[in-house]
Design a protein around this nucleic acid. Structure first.
Length: 698
RNA sequence: GCGCGAUUAGCUCAGUUGGUAGAGCACCCCGUUUACACCGGGAUGGUCGCAGGUUCGAGUCCUGCAUCGCGCACCA
């Protein structure tokens, strides 16, 4: 004689009807904040959320990290730890500015026609409205984050931490301001770090020009106007007759010039003719050669990519227009020997794919080697463990070959660099001042003070995120929750972010910022293609959540997703987990129709406990994908398909069924928090929320 | 140039410290026996890229090769 069950179980599970209310219950309970947890003596467990860029909607990658981190945090919370998941939002400097500039472009406006203050305010409004939108989306995905501790990357206390780090680097002589070759994007009008450039393979013409007695080869005729130095390898026998410093008169693009021979080992005798002329202002190799030989630097191309007056009749032309005309002129003068097609790699801006124009610019650089050294030690000693091993190798390789870091950006949307320069009337810098407020005017005995108008590379500030968010150095949270437990983020920002956090965290606090690094891969579409707006194959996690339920989305993102490898998000797979949610719903319906008779069968309990122990170990060792799959199979293939079938018509199974259901819900909760909490409220009305229920394995 | 991976069922991928291969989807057959048709039962399907080696035993460790992919880097 079956018992009456709650009528809600007589219909299929409807995620949309319950998820919102459940999230509200969690949030109202206060348990997202570790200070409110029933058990206050547990050890701390901390994850700092990688702050999503507040410049659009959450994408599938966000849904993946939310799911992974939420599983880790809910698991820790149920095991009695003081679990803190600290949420954030990123102003995302250059990224957001690019997004906003596209919007301006659509409106027929341009940032270059705007006052910086007005532009800053507009982007701030844009960012803040996206931020609150995004917070709602994080809730929809079930993120059990402590909203009372949320931090925005432009919060005053973050900026103050960033300024302290800048000052400290200056004090420790790890910071320099130098005129170096930078990666200049002519579209975005800013310099970029090496990481912010990409290389594309391209076929171009390689021109061979007669340069006095030599033949030089170049792919960039438009830079050659100021070339007065001709360089060859000192051991190249073909040119042994020429001496370093020897001067030659020769005919060049715009008339006769005096050229000087330079011998330098940077030249590869096997490339082209083994001779080249140099353009120190627009080429990194040439820059170094010029530095070694103390040669002058002259700008040929302006910041917009147009030729300067040194180009004579070509002045004011764009590179694209000028190049063929210059070749034509040289041809007419009989100075073109031949032209070859060749393939080479060209650096481009990672945002607009416009060709990078190397330029010399005064920027702030951080000396990275000493910082990298400590990070390498931390990785090698195991103070910080990187999943997977291959990512650890990649990280070490990068750290071991680190280059100095340009942290200046010529954009308004960012944290201003707290530096002032005292300049004479020529514009030469007489003195540099670094501080929160400007230098007192009384100090300017000569020249005038001008503020650095640049902002920091976003990664310079976000590289300090773990300790900045926790209130270093005196904050209570810093003392309680630092070093954090896990940094879970995308493998694609291993260098941009993880490496910088590691280095800056060690530098400022003397401790690693996190003990584990868990890296996830890219979320691709069902066919393994990278999602992009232009391809139109973007899957919105919020849409998927609405259609299949958040729990199904979460399972689909987790099962079979090993750390560091890309995941194909197939709606069919999500559908399979929607069915699983319904299965669980119907299991409950059946169990609730049974009386709690008989004693728990030892063999069933032992079997369940062994499974529970096994998946606990999996989660502890970050095999989350495997824990999820094992649970799925236990619940469906063992519990539903076998145990329940055997139990039919046998009242002595009653208590066993309740035992297995109740404890399965505990195990499933981190993965499928909504449906498990909903069922929990029906089977144990007098107890606290499932999110703080005790994990079945100690 | 330097470095890191991948190659397992038709497709997409798991396979934890070496113990005679698994999932989802697809496909085929049967079934509406009261938890569930968002279901149940069953079937087909793999010489685990190739060649060697270590081992009682290798998808799993080692070496070489092939193919594909990724990252970093100043070749005019």
């Amino acid at each position: 004689m079956p018992k009456e069950v709650d009528p809600k179980f007589l219909k299929p599970y409807n995620p949309q009807a319950v998820e919102g209310a459940i999230y509200k219950k969690w949030e109202d309970s206060g348990y997202f904040n570790p200070d409110n947890l029933p058990k206050q003596d547990g050890e701390p467990f901390t994850i700092i959320m990688p702050p999503p860029n507040a410049n659009g909607s959450l994408h599938a990658g966000h849904a993946l990290f939310v799911t992974l981190q939420d599983i880790m945090v809910r698991f820790a919370r149920m095991r009695g730890k003081r679990a803190l998941w600290l949420p954030g939002a990123d102003h995302a400097g250059f990224e957001t500015q690019v997004v906003y500039e596209k919007q301006l472009e659509k409106e027929g406006r341009s940032r270059f026609q705007m006052e910086p203050e007005a532009l800053y305010k507009e982007i701030m409004d844009f960012t803040l409205s996206n931020k609150s939108f995004m917070e709602g989306q994080l809730r929809q995905l079930g993120a059990s984050t402590d909203w009372s501790r949320e931090v925005f990357t432009l919060d005053p206390r973050v900026i103050s931490t960033v300024y302290d780090t800048f000052k400290q680097l200056h004090k420790d002589d790890l910071l320099y301001r130098g005129a170096r070759i930078v990666n200049w994007c002519p579209k975005h009008q800013t310099s970029l770090s090496n990481l912010e450039t990409e290389r594309i393979n391209r076929k171009d013409s390689l021109y061979y020009f007669k340069y006095g007695p030599f033949t030089i080869s170049t792919a960039r005729p438009e830079t050659k106007f100021g070339d007065k130095y001709v360089v060859m390898h000192p051991d190249d026998a073909r040119y042994a007759q020429y001496q370093d410093g020897q001067q030659l008169e020769l005919e060049w693009i715009n008339g006769p010039i005096t050229a000087t021979v330079i011998k330098d080992e940077a030249i590869d005798p096997a490339f082209g003719t083994g001779v080249m002329t140099i353009t120190p202002w627009h080429d990194p190799i040439d820059f170094e050669i010029a530095q070694r030989h103390k040669l002058p630097f002259e700008q040929v191309i302006d910041w917009r990519g147009k030729l300067l007056p040194i180009a004579g009749e070509f002045a004011g032309m764009s590179i694209k227009d000028a190049r063929p005309k210059i070749v034509e002129k040289l041809q007419a003068k009989g100075l073109v020997e031949k032209t070859e097609e060749y393939e080479h790699e060209v650096p481009v801006c990672y945002k607009c794919e416009r060709e990078i124009e190397p330029q010399i610019k005064e920027q702030w650089f951080v000396k990275m080697e000493p910082l990298a050294k400590r990070a390498i030690e931390a990785v090698k000693s195991g103070e910080v463990k990187v999943l997977t091993e291959s990512h650890e190798k990649v990280l070490l390789h990068w750290l071991e070959n680190i280059q100095d870091w340009n942290i200046s950006r010529q954009i308004v949307w960012g944290i201003p660099i707290p530096a002032w320069f005292r300049k004479d009337t020529e514009g030469n810098v007489l003195e540099i001042y670094i501080g929160d407020e400007g230098p007192s005017s009384a100090k300017a005995t000569e020249g005038t003070w001008a503020k650095d108008i640049d902002t920091f590379d976003t990664w310079f500030s976000s590289g300090q995120w773990p300790f900045a968010t926790l209130g270093y150095p005196d904050g209570k949270d810093f003392k309680n929750f630092y070093p954090t437990t896990v940094m879970e983020t995308g493998a694609d920002i291993l260098f941009f972010w993880v490496a910088r956090m590691l280095m800056l965290g060690l530098y400022r606090t003397g401790e690693v910022p996190f003990k584990y690094v868990y890296l996830h891969g890219l979320v691709r579409d069902a066919k393994g293609k990278k999602m992009s707006k232009s391809k139109g194959n973007v899957i919105s996690p919020l849409d998927v959540s609405n259609e299949y339920g958040t729990d199904a989305l979460r399972m689909g993102l987790i099962v079979g997703n090993t750390p560091g490898t890309d995941l194909n998000l197939d709606p069919q797979k999500i559908g399979a987990y929607k069915k699983f949610a319904n299965k669980l719903w119907n299991i409950t319906r059946f169990v609730l129709s049974q009386e709690r008779t008989g004693a728990i069968k030892p063999e069933l309990k032992d079997e369940f406990d062994a499974m529970a122990k096994d998946i606990t170990k999996d989660i502890e060792e970050y095999r989350i994908y495997m824990a999820a799959e094992k649970l799925y199979h236990y619940v469906w293939d063992r519990f539903a398909a076998q145990i329940i079938e055997e139990s039919k018509g046998k009242p002595e199974y009653g208590e066993s069924l309740y035992y297995i259901l109740e404890n399965s819900l505990r195990l499933l909760h981190p993965f499928m928090p909504f449906i498990t909490e909903e069922i929990w409220s029906s089977i144990s009305k007098d107890k606290d929320l499932l999110m703080v229920a005790k994990w079945p394995v100690a």
